[in-house]
Structures are given as structure tokens and as C-alpha cells.
Computed example of a mutant assay.
Amino acid sequence: MNVATNARKDAFQTGKSFNRAKNKAFTGFVWIVSALVVLFIFGLLFLILKKGLPSLTWDFIFGLPSEMEEGGGIGPALFNSFYMLFISLLISIPLGMAAGIYLAEFAPANKLIAFVRICVEGLASVPSIIFGLFGIALFVEMMGIGLTIIGGAVSLAFLNLPVMTRVTEESIRAVPKELKQASFALGATHLQTIRKALVPTAISGLVTGICLVAGRAFGESAVIILTAGVTTSGEMWDFNLLSPGETLAVHLWYVQSEAIVPDAVSISDKAAAVLVFIILMFNVLFRIPLWIKERNNR
């Protein structure tokens, strides 16, 4: 009897030791892969920022671009990037959040809604150039307004709308059901529950979605080339929605591929640094309110 018991104990200890070894090996593997990914990202950012940031000047950031002579800036393209980003977010965030909340809270569980979810997921993975072709068909051919800021901004909103919808739906669904039930138990209406309980709890996921769509919109080029063009009006602060809307990402592509200015390489390095730096700042600025909220809740 004791021999059998000891044998079982030895087998259990051996299996336990083997599982510990596997757990340590897997944990080490995950740490190594994570470290390599982080190092790759930091290395890529370092290479981009190292080439462009040291030579940046205010004249370059706010100056007008040059077609022939060296020393041109990115002022109008940078302004168009922010202007079109603001318009696209003004459209995509409210509509995307409303659609996501509807799918998470109000939509019935039937085949039609399941098909709608499949369509939204499919649109979220569609290449951006398809939305550019849609923008050409809608704004250039059907409406006849040409390559404009408003056409590019609305096309960007269409591009980001499925992503914002899916992120909102998943963030709302991730909220514990007990919180929703507790809100109803206290006499809150469904709308009050969404406003006061679900959205504040899901704010981290919603902010992540906004960061994703903002970064994608700011760095997008294919949609802008097809719907807003590769030129600017030549003015620094042009708020006319019917003006051509070359953005910083498009200007970077144009300088790298077609520009004949002597300092094209220098312009592309500095423009890439500005583009990456601004996208990083987007993520930091959107996260600051969350960090403050988490710190106050401790």
C-alpha cells in the first residue's frame, strides 16, 4: 500500500515539475518575443525620428511647398491633415458609436443583424483604395465637385466608420452584466444606463478605437489621393471645403515618388518624422484623461 502511494506521489511530483518547467519555458518565450517586438518598434521609431527631427525648423513646418526649388515646407499639407481629420472624426465617431451601441444593446438577435455584423466586419478589413474609388464615384463623378477637402474627409469617415462601430460594440459588450442589472435595479432607464454606466465603464476601449481611427485617418494616403488630390490651394489656412486637399501623408508619397526638388530626400525624412511624431502625440493625448481617471479612482 505504501509502495503504491509513494509511486503515485512520485508520479505527481514528476508531472508537477514538468508542468512548472513548461510554464517557465513558455513564459520565457513570451517575454523574449515581446521584447523583440518592442525593440523593433523602438528601433523603427528611432530611425525615422533620428533622420528628421534634428533638422526640423518652424519655416519647414509652416512654410509653403516648392515644386522646383529646395527649401519648401509642409504648412498647407499639415493643415489639411488636421482639418480633414477633424471633419472625418466629427462624422465617424458619433455615427460609429451610435451604431455600435445599437448593435450591442438594442439590435435583436436574428439573421439580419448577424448579416449586418458580418458586413461591418468585412468593411473594416476592406483596403482603403476601395473607399477611395467609392469617393471618386460619389463626389467626383456623381456630385461633380472634383477633388476636394470635403470629399476626402467624408471618404475617410466612411473608411473609419466600420472600425469605430466594431470597437464600440465590443467595448460595450465587455462591460459586466451585473453593472447593467444594478443600474436597472436602481430605477435607471436604458438610456441613462448607457450614458451613466456602460459608456463610462467602456471608455478605455472607446478611446482606443478613437486613437486607431485618428491615426489611420491622419496617415492615410490612398483615399486622399483619389478623392482630395495631390495638390493644395497654396494657402496656409484654407478653410474652403471645395479646395484641393493634399495631406502630409500624400505629400510624403509625392515627394518620394514624383517630386523633382533637389532636397526631396531631406523633405521626406522631415515629413515622415513629423507624421510619426504627431500620431504618437495623438495616442498620448487621448490617454491622458484615462490616466487621470485611473489615478483618481485609486
Score class of each variant (00 low, 15 high):
residue 122 G to A: 07
residue 53 L to D: 05
residue 210 I to T: 03
residue 5 T to R: 14
residue 54 P to V: 02
residue 176 P to T: 09
residue 210 I to W: 00
residue 45 L to Y: 10
residue 207 V to Y: 05
residue 40 F to T: 10
residue 233 S to K: 00
residue 48 I to Q: 07
residue 198 L to V: 06
residue 292 I to M: 14
residue 21 A to F: 12
residue 76 P to A: 06
residue 100 G to Q: 01
residue 27 T to A: 13
residue 176 P to H: 10
residue 38 V to T: 08
residue 39 L to C: 11
residue 89 L to K: 00
residue 269 D to P: 02
residue 14 T to N: 14
residue 156 L to E: 02
residue 191 L to E: 12
residue 204 S to M: 12
residue 260 I to V: 12
residue 233 S to Y: 00
residue 42 F to R: 08
residue 190 H to A: 10
residue 69 E to P: 09
residue 224 I to T: 03
residue 292 I to C: 12
residue 176 P to V: 09
residue 20 R to Y: 09
residue 185 A to S: 09
residue 35 A to Q: 07
residue 15 G to A: 15
residue 118 I to Q: 11
residue 27 T to W: 11
residue 111 K to D: 11
residue 275 L to P: 01
residue 113 I to S: 03
residue 238 D to E: 02
residue 138 L to A: 06
residue 121 E to K: 06
residue 298 R to P: 10
residue 16 K to N: 14
residue 280 L to P: 04
residue 2 N to Y: 12
residue 59 D to N: 11
residue 258 E to P: 12
residue 212 L to H: 01
residue 116 V to R: 06
residue 163 V to F: 05
residue 21 A to C: 15
residue 229 G to M: 01
residue 43 G to D: 05
residue 258 E to V: 13
residue 290 L to V: 12
residue 162 P to C: 02
residue 88 S to R: 03
residue 44 L to D: 12
residue 254 Y to R: 10
residue 202 A to K: 03
residue 191 L to T: 14
residue 165 T to V: 04
residue 194 I to W: 01
residue 72 G to V: 05
residue 27 T to M: 13
residue 221 S to H: 08
residue 189 T to E: 05
residue 110 N to V: 02
residue 2 N to Q: 14
residue 275 L to I: 05
residue 274 V to A: 01
residue 174 A to Q: 06
residue 280 L to E: 08
residue 7 A to H: 12
residue 192 Q to M: 10
residue 246 E to L: 03
residue 162 P to W: 00
residue 253 W to I: 08
residue 133 L to R: 07
residue 70 E to H: 15
residue 31 W to K: 10
residue 216 R to E: 10
residue 73 G to Q: 00
residue 234 G to M: 03
residue 194 I to N: 01
residue 227 T to C: 04
residue 235 E to H: 06
residue 119 C to G: 14
residue 15 G to K: 15
residue 218 F to I: 04
residue 26 F to C: 08
residue 181 Q to D: 12
residue 191 L to F: 13
residue 69 E to M: 14
residue 258 E to A: 15
residue 164 M to F: 01
residue 53 L to E: 05
residue 17 S to M: 14
residue 66 S to A: 13
residue 111 K to P: 12
residue 71 G to H: 10
residue 233 S to P: 02
residue 205 G to M: 04
residue 217 A to G: 05
